[in-house]
């Protein structure tokens, strides 16, 4: 066929030769074969495309589709994304106070929690979360969080009688009477773990460290006394076995005593040679 092709001269002759070649000779058979091949591919392609209707592994899962953060309604997702960093993955053993604490939810009201989440707590590390305050949560989401977390962690109802008040407002500064009473309460109820001076005992670290006290509000101290940190072994206001619960007044007094250790302007972290490392910048 090749020689024939080469010899063919006029257009018509060449055409004839090509035509004959394509139909009768092995080349023609091959031509048919690959036409059939293409057809086969197209059919296979179409079949696969049809099979696509019926759950192939590549089909995107609608459940995994991205949701706008403001549309998230699942309380657990909201908690994990916004709160878990400080309050712990399971609501305890975080750097900040635990929220998986039934007593806590019995003492605080929804409005208090909503307010704290919305606006944050001035002077502490608790940031404001409401969009209106520069945070990332909508008001609906904050409501969902408050009710959802209460449902998740409040646990069985407690007798409401005798629960201490979560917040009593700030005690008048320099109330010497309160401070003295607070020292007595501390010596009787706290010193066993925190040391007679509050600078540490069985429980590590000082409660009267000026830097620490500069970073916590009286309310945070009050919460610490009321709710303890049961996740870390610190009992709540009811104390250990056989002890009587602290009264509202005692709680206020001991907070006043702790607060009396605050200093006007806490030092820069001290090192033996320099009080102010920032001065290093200008040798």
């Amino acid at each position: 066929m090749k020689t024939e092709l080469l010899r063919a001269r006029s257009g018509r002759q060449r055409r004839r030769a090509a035509t004959r070649g394509a139909s009768g000779t092995p080349a023609g058979q091959r031509a048919r074969q690959w036409i059939a091949g293409i057809a086969g591919q197209v059919v296979a392609f179409a079949a696969l495309a049809l099979a696509a209707c019926t759950g192939l592994p590549g089909q995107p899962d609608p459940a995994a589709r991205p949701i706008r953060p403001a549309d998230v309604k699942d309380v657990n997702v909201l908690y994990a994304g916004n709160c878990a960093g400080c309050h712990g993955a399971e609501g305890k053993l975080g750097a900040a106070r635990p929220l998986a604490d039934g007593l806590y939810w019995h003492v605080v009201r929804d409005a208090d929690v909503r307010d704290v989440v919305t606006r944050g707590i001035e002077g502490t590390e608790m940031p404001a979360f409401a969009m209106s305050e520069g945070g990332a949560l909508t008001d609906t989401q904050i409501d969902l969080l408050v009710t959802g977390l209460r449902a998740r962690w409040q646990g069985t109802p407690l007798a409401n009688r005798g629960l201490p008040a979560w917040s009593v407002g700030s005690a008048p500064a320099g109330d010497l009477g309160a401070t003295q009473r607070g020292a007595a309460v501390f010596a009787a109820r706290c010193a066993l773990c925190h040391g007679a001076t509050g600078e540490g005992g069985l429980a590590p670290g000082s409660l009267v460290d000026p830097s620490y006290l500069a970073l916590v509000s009286d309310q945070a101290l009050r919460s610490a006394v009321i709710f303890g940190r049961t996740d870390l072994g610190m009992p709540d206001y009811r104390g250990g076995r056989g002890e009587t619960p602290l009264t509202n007044g005692e709680i206020s007094d001991v907070v006043a005593w702790l607060g009396s250790h605050r200093v006007a302007s806490p030092r820069w972290p001290a090192t033996p040679q320099r009080a102010n490392p920032a001065r290093e910048e200008k040798p």
């Binding site: 916004n82 712990g88 975080g94």
Partner: peptide, 21 residues
């Protein structure tokens, strides 16, 4: 990460109040 990744528990246990802050 700051709000979604908890401090590892072993870095919370046994720390002083100041260290926790």
């Amino acid at each position: 990460a700051w709000s979604a990744t908890p401090t590892p528990v072993e870095m919370v246990r046994g720390r002083t109040p100041l260290q926790l802050q």
